[in-house]
Design a protein around this nucleic acid. Structure first.
Lengths: 203, 203
DNA sequence: AGACAAATTTTCCAATCGGAAAATATTTAA
DNA sequence: TTAAATATTTTCCGATTGGAAAATTTGTCT
């Protein structure tokens, strides 16, 4: 059997979170039903982890509860919580390789971080075989540790950075990095993924 | 009105977000299928907004894509103006000096950033004259560019980091850095400032 | 204690999801 | 160009969700 229990556990935790949110507002199932447009029975079952709501219903539920959907998932229990820390030694970064670059995700096994730091190596001489700009939510910070790098931002002129230079930009703009010198370039990138930003606790 | 089209629209946007995440990693449906345990057809349909995934599948998908679930829901870059960027040249960091260390704030004139990158120099052999732990909200990332650094986290044992090592922690725990070698140490710190991140919903 | 009202859970079934495999579509090779 | 390989979409159908209403539980009076 698969790790059914794992999924079930998640569902139950999710349900309890919903129930707590409803409780905080002092609403009954009927109240919430009216606000969300979901059937009472559906909410009841969801709160007890009997069913797994679909994306659509999750959206309605969030709207009715007047919370952002991420409130359902940023969970004060596991992952990167208050008072936690993680160390990444030079060696044990998790390596990921694509045609154009190699990057190592730091702390890839730590969840719920609000920042995603990565070390990257941009191969020299790779002329722009790049398919397309990269685009994602959040903000991004890049500093050149070694070599020369050209940063392409969609609709802007290319920016040349030398060792020690840095750039900060909205990750929503199409972006692309390439080594610009004779050698490989070494960069450090930190993405801020709008998710999982430490939620204030209630105590 | 039971805005059906609204739900459909949301689903489609969701699907496109998934597809982009997959694209960024250069994965095929088959790749992602293996990483998530979901059927290829399921992912295909989800990406096109044909079906609304359940909570369970969303969890598997997030795990496979190595993102936090809330990444699926939070829309693109808020706060920091969309389409903006800023460059900091090696020279023109704004220097700030204290007894124990020197640090240079990058992009100090750029508002609304959700991350605060700083370069720091920790003077050698400054024995711990430190007053007190530093504490603030958010999360913090530190990487040692040069030298040896000891990171003190309140209530924990001190952590020794060498060049290339990194640490990620909740800024709420009292923290403190010091050089640990014979020479000055050079570090890069990125703080995630909880403000300017949360954004209201618009509907 | 009762009766009544309100909140929650169960039941039943239509609608929808999700997986395996077949059918297309797209890319790569020759 | 055709053939082979790879990637994606469709089809089919069993499994699960989600809603309406009935059944049950939990309160709240008197």
């Amino acid at each position: 059997m698969k790790q059914d229990s794992d999924l079930a556990t998640q569902r139950i935790e999710f349900g309890q979170r919903i129930k707590r949110l409803r409780g905080e507002k002092g609403w009954t199932l009927t109240d919430l039903s009216e606000r969300t447009g979901l059937a009472i029975s559906t909410i009841s079952k969801a709160e007890r982890g009997i069913i797994a709501l679909t994306y659509d219903r999750l959206g309605q539920l969030a709207h009715g509860l007047e919370v952002d959907m991420s409130a359902f998932f940023t969970d004060a229990g596991k992952g990167f919580a208050r008072g936690s820390f993680a160390i990444a030694r030079k060696g044990d970064f998790q390596r990921q390789e694509t045609d154009n670059y190699v990057y190592e995700m730091l702390f890839s096994d730590t969840w719920n971080k609000s920042m995603l730091p990565m070390m990257g190596t941009l191969k020299a001489r790779e002329l722009y075989q790049f398919e397309d700009f990269v685009r994602h939510s959040g903000q991004e910070f890049l500093i050149v540790l070694d070599g020369k790098v050209t940063v392409h931002l969609e609709g802007r002129e290319a920016v040349n950075l030398e060792q020690g230079d840095a750039i900060y930009f909205d990750s929503g703009m199409g972006h692309l990095y390439a080594s610009n010198g004779d050698n490989d370039a070494r960069i450090l990138v930190v993405c801020q993924s709008a998710d999982a930003v430490a939620a204030p606790r209630n105590d």
